[in-house]
Nucleic acid binder design. Structure first.
Lengths: 156, 156
DNA sequence: GAAATACAGTACTGGAGAGGTCCTAATTGA
DNA sequence: TCAATTAGGACCTCTCCAGTACTGTATTTC
């Protein structure tokens, strides 16, 4: 499957928790309680997200974490890249990593697929992820094409 | 990263080799020679693709494998699903696999992202993957958005 | 019919990396 | 000063991918 790490999934869950709670200063322990994710894992994820600039932190007794920007300003693509590195469906996107480059005619089209995914994830924001159920309402209109009809106008 | 297995990448390379050579009966050994992929791995992949119905096989001295359908009839989504299982960007697409379902508001939107990817991969066919460089020409018009600035001569 | 060739199926192994833990500073409020 | 919390590592463990090996079955050729 094209799957992402469980940690990335957890990371999104954490960020959506922040998005629901705009107040500054949620501690790692409280996040663990709310999400059910083990605290050491929460701590690890928060450090990663902090380093990526998605969170701000406050040390000390009343310390904690909070979003560095509004949820509307954080694309899902940025979140995933922060947690997993560059978005790529296959490794041969980077030159030299594929031993079969010589006879591989599939490469440019893999890149095309990558771009579609990148585009979809760039237009979906954390705010969209926190909305309960309707995938239609987003800030820029309709960032995700209606799936039932052919969304062949994914302008980039 | 959102990445797929190396074996899936290999599988696509094998299938594109078939697509270039419509003649029936390419042996595993010959495929190994042509693609540079180790023969045992080739054999393993061919068995998987055969079981998925993407290939037909012929035993015996002059035996070998061939595509069961025309390359235009094989969506990339089917290939990937054959090699890796159901297309899903995260595991919680299947109910019961996520321990945090209760407090996870991100789920419906993950599904939306999944659908976009699924859709993109469903409209790209094996025939499209075999085309040398221009991602514009496809059988149903323009299934993938023009990656106009993309094919900057990755040929090696 | 026998031998050679190639597919069919299963089981096994090594290694990389994800997932998770632990420990020791540094910082802040009471 | 003490407790609570983040900062930043090093480290461990276990899963699963990737590759290998072996035995059996089918088909062609001589």
């Amino acid at each position: 499957m094209i799957r992402m790490n469980k940690l990335t999934d957890y990371g999104v869950v954490l960020l959506t928790t922040f998005a629901h709670e705009p107040a500054l200063g949620i501690s790692a322990r409280e996040l663990s309680v709310r999400t059910g994710i083990p605290q050491p894992t929460v701590v690890k994820l928060l450090k990663t997200l902090l380093k990526a600039g998605l969170l701000v932190s406050q040390r000390g007794t009343k310390g904690g974490y909070a979003l560095s920007r509004a949820p509307e300003e954080i694309p899902v693509a940025v979140i995933i890249e922060a947690l997993e590195g560059p978005l790529a469906i296959t490794e041969c996107s980077l030159p030299g990593t594929c031993a079969h480059e010589r006879g591989c005619p599939a490469r440019p089209n893999w890149k095309a697929v990558n771009d579609v995914i990148q585009d979809a994830l760039s237009r979906l924001t954390l705010a969209d992820m926190t909305r309960p159920a309707s995938p239609g309402a987003t800030r820029t209109g309709s960032p995700l094409p209606a799936v039932d009809s052919a969304p062949r106008s994914i302008a980039s």
